[in-house]
Design a protein around this nucleic acid. Structure first.
Length: 213
DNA sequence: CGTAAGATTCACT
DNA sequence: GTGAATCTTACGA
C-alpha cells in the first residue's frame, strides 16, 4: 500500500493518506464518481503541493452515452480512455482543459470528469496560476480547477496511482457524505441522464443551489 | 485543407 | 439569460 505524508495536517492530526490504487478506478464510472467525492486531489509542482477536496464529478459511460467523447469510437484525442484505468484523460475545450480519470478498463472507454474541488492547501500557488479575488471561484468548474492546478495536456495519459505530479488520496479522517445527483452540465446530448454527483450542500460546486458566488 | 462543434468561462444586459 | 472569446479536434472534400 502506497502512502504519502500530509505536511500541512489536512484531514486531522498526524494524517497519513492512502493513495487510491488502480483497483479503486477499476470499477464502473458511476461508482468511481460517487466514491471520489470527499477524496483529495493532490498536485505536486516545482516542490509545491496543491490539494483540493473533490466536491463535484460526472460519469461518462462506456455504452449508450452519446455525450462520451468515445461514443463514436477511438480517435487521437480519446485514445487514453481505451487504456487502463487510473490514468488521466485531459482534453482542451476553448481556452481551458478538463481533467478526467479513466475507469473500468478492459477496452471499455469510460471516465469520471472532475468538475470542482474545494481548495485546501497550496492556495497561494493556485492563485498564481489563476488569480481570483474569491476563493469560491478558484476551482469551482472543470476548466477553473485545471487552470488553478496547472493541469494541461502534458498530463494526458498520466498514471494517477503513483503519487507523482498528480494523484488522489483518501483522507485519514472521513465522514459519511450526502450525495446530490443531477443531470450533467454543458452536454448537448444525453442531457437527461442523472450522472452528475455533488457533495451535499458544498458551496464549492460549479452550479446549483449551494454554489457560492 | 476548410469548416464546424464543443464535458467552458467571463462580461454584459 | 445571452453572446463572445479562442483553439483544438474531428471529419469530409
Amino acid at each position: 500500500m502506497q502512502r504519502v505524508c500530509d505536511p500541512h495536517g489536512i484531514g486531522g492530526t498526524a494524517a497519513w493518506h492512502k493513495v487510491l490504487a488502480p483497483s479503486f478506478y477499476h470499477r464502473d464510472p458511476v461508482t468511481v464518481a460517487c466514491e471520489l467525492l470527499g477524496k483529495l486531489l493532490v498536485r505536486s509542482l516545482d516542490g509545491d503541493f496543491m490539494i483540493g477536496r473533490v466536491v463535484e464529478t460526472e460519469a461518462y459511460l462506456a455504452a449508450d452515452d452519446p455525450a462520451n467523447h468515445a461514443f463514436r469510437g477511438r480517435t487521437g484525442r480519446n485514445a487514453v480512455m481505451f487504456g487502463p484505468p487510473g490514468h488521466a484523460y485531459v482534453y482542451a475545450i476553448h481556452r481551458y482543459h478538463c481533467l478526467n480519470v479513466v475507469t473500468e478498463g478492459e477496452g471499455l472507454p469510460s471516465a469520471v470528469l472532475i468538475r470542482a474541488v474545494e481548495p485546501l492547501m497550496g492556495i497561494d500557488r493556485m492563485q498564481r496560476q489563476r488569480p481570483t479575488g474569491r476563493l469560491s471561484t478558484l476551482t469551482s468548474g472543470p476548466g477553473r480547477l485545471c487552470q488553478a492546478l496547472a493541469i494541461d495536456r502534458t498530463l494526458n495519459g498520466w498514471d494517477v496511482t503513483r503519487a507523482q505530479r498528480l494523484w488522489f488520496v483518501a483522507p485519514a479522517c472521513s465522514a459519511s457524505v450526502t450525495i446530490t445527483v443531477t443531470a450533467r452540465i454543458g452536454v448537448t446530448s444525453a442531457r437527461q441522464l442523472p450522472l452528475r454527483f455533488c457533495l451535499g450542500m458544498s458551496p464549492f460546486v460549479s452550479r446549483g443551489p449551494y454554489a457560492r458566488r
